[in-house]
């Protein structure tokens, strides 16, 4: 555990809590892509199956459980409790365009051809692209509430901090996880355009982020 890794995990947790509380307190999921949230729930489910096979640390187990519970609770809020506010019209990204290639890649490129390893690889690849329905929705409607942009900022920051963690681990332990690093770089690149808009419009402006 190093400072980048810890900061990354905290950033990830903050992002998920921000989104959950936003929906819970406003009793509305307007502007939130339910599809992205289902994909994230799928990411955690397929990655954390090792909860049943290995014990790493109390920190590891607790964080995994928190991520799982919060991701399913968020999906529940969007599709059940506050489904009246769900904007299915604008959440029109075709997720099969992500799921099919990601599944195929996970079978082709993995550390071992075993169910758990393939599912782990699937989760890493899927996480890299899971935010696309949300970004697509913002592009389509042309705006995002500032609280939604804070969520996206912390979610993007988390993987960027993991990149720093991997650089650190490579130099201190010689640790290099090719699948995670390549996917992590791709994932972070998807947020770069958003980071720019976040700094120039949300932080300097305040209020909604609207696209030209």
């Amino acid at each position: 555990m190093n400072i980048f890794r810890l900061a990354g995990d905290v950033s990830h947790l903050v992002a998920i809590i921000i989104l959950f509380l936003k929906i819970w307190k406003s009793k509305s999921c307007a502007g939130i892509s339910g599809k992205s949230q289902v994909l994230f729930a799928l990411v955690f489910t397929s990655r954390y199956l090792d909860l049943f096979t290995v014990f790493i640390s109390a920190y590891n187990t607790i964080m995994k459980l928190v991520f799982l519970v919060l991701s399913y609770a968020t999906v529940y809020l969007i599709y059940m409790r506050f489904r009246g506010s769900y904007d299915s019209e604008n959440d029109s990204f075709r997720v099969e365009f992500l799921l099919v290639p990601v599944t195929g890649l996970a079978f082709l490129e993995n550390y071992a051809f075993t169910p758990l390893e393939i599912l782990w690889t699937f989760s890493i690849f899927l996480e890299a692209v899971a935010i696309m329905p949300q970004l697509f929705m913002i592009t389509k409607t042309g705006e995002a509430e500032s609280i939604t942009t804070h969520y996206l900022f912390f979610l993007g920051l988390y993987r960027a901090l993991y990149l720093a963690n991997w650089v650190w681990r490579y130099h201190t332990e010689g640790f290099f996880d090719q699948i995670a690093v390549v996917s992590g770089v791709v994932q972070t690149i998807f947020y770069c355009d958003f980071f720019y808009l976040y700094v120039t419009r949300v932080l300097r402006g305040s209020g909604k982020m609207s696209l030209p």
């Binding site: 995990d9 990830h12 963690n165």
Partner: peptide
């Protein structure tokens, strides 16, 4: 090995 080691990350 790398297969086991990456599992300590979230």
């Amino acid at each position: 090995t790398s297969q086991i080691k990456h599992k300590d990350e979230l």
